[in-house]
């Protein structure tokens, strides 16, 4: 082997952490769907490469107590049929093409942290925890803090933790074609009927997923939590508040090849209304799903 950087293929997490400690600044290779094309074009330089593919413990997913744990190297395809996490599964199914779903991973989505990433948007709505592991052990960060601070150069994302669902959840998305496209706008909605709250995140509209806090509060206050239903106009109002949240979000994206910015906020509102109608129909049945 020659040159300044090489390929490391650890077979266990501890080996990966040792390797990372020995070569700070190395690129962590998960699925590669973002990294490999970027290396080719030169958009990202080639550095020391640590592949995580062989670390079996990173591919595990499971449930324990109130928590679901998803290993960083779980692929979208691994999650697409997971009945314990319906929102996550819906998100995974909506990602790219079969080829991308078979390759891309949870950890990769967090590593790239593309504002258009489907998974990131759902994880924000789910208020997921991100488990990072380093030489001194593992720690868990809230998704918001993770996106703001990332992790140390000697740490890697090893898992994502989600609260076991306490109510309906969904992920809706508008792409530029019928399927196999990145989101122009997307909406993840997670209903927590135990704590009587919802969390809503909008993707594709700003430099990171946007939480619509005022809209969430509106639902928390107006929903009939005994049935899990919204009053007739509340879903509509929820959509308006989400659209407003997008318009006023910091770092809101401008017009691009897919859509003008005004469309994104409009679309976010529509998706939010739909998501609310789907997740907060209560016991009234299918009719309540029509806004």
């Amino acid at each position: 082997m020659t040159g300044v950087a090489t390929m490391r293929r650890p077979r266990s997490l501890s080996e990966a952490i040792d390797t990372l400690a020995a070569s700070p600044g190395a690129d962590l290779l998960a699925g590669g769907t973002d990294l490999v094309p970027a290396l080719r074009t030169g958009a990202r330089p080639v550095r020391e490469m640590i592949s995580l593919r062989r670390i079996v413990e990173l591919r595990a997913r499971g449930a324990a107590g109130d928590w679901l744990t998803i290993g960083a190297c779980a692929t979208y395809a691994d999650l697409a049929g997971w009945s314990l996490a319906p929102g996550l599964a819906a998100t995974a199914r909506s990602v790219g093409s079969p080829q991308i779903r078979n390759t891309g991973t949870v950890g990769g989505a967090l590593g790239t942290a593309s504002p258009r990433g489907d998974l990131l948007t759902f994880l924000v709505a789910a208020d997921a925890g991100v488990v990072v592991t380093g030489p001194v052990g593992q720690r868990q960060l809230g998704i918001g803090r993770f996106l703001a601070d990332r992790h140390g150069p000697d740490e890697l994302v090893t898992a994502v933790k989600l609260a076991r669902p306490c109510g309906p959840q969904t992920y809706l998305k508008i792409g530029a074609r019928q399927t196999a496209s990145i989101p122009v706008a997307s909406c993840a909605l997670v209903v927590d009927r135990v704590r009587r709250l919802v969390r809503c995140a909008i993707g594709g509209v700003a430099s990171r997923p946007v939480r619509a806090l005022a809209a969430e509060d509106h639902v928390a206050e107006t929903a009939d939590w005994s049935t899990g239903a919204l009053p007739p106009d509340a879903a509509h109002r929820f959509g308006e508040l989400v659209a407003e949240a997008v318009t006023t979000a910091p770092d809101v994206a401008g017009d691009d090849v897919y859509a003008p910015a005004a469309y994104r906020s409009h679309a976010a509102g529509v998706l939010a209304r739909r998501a609310a109608a789907r997740c907060l129909a209560g016991a009234r049945g299918a009719d309540a799903r029509r806004p």
Binding site: M7, V36, M49, A77, Q99, I100
Partner: peptide, 15 residues
């Protein structure tokens, strides 16, 4: 698994 080989790092396909 069906993949797009352009998104796979060759050196990582070793085994």
């Amino acid at each position: 698994r069906l993949v797009a080989s352009c998104t796979v790092l060759a050196a990582d396909a070793e085994d």
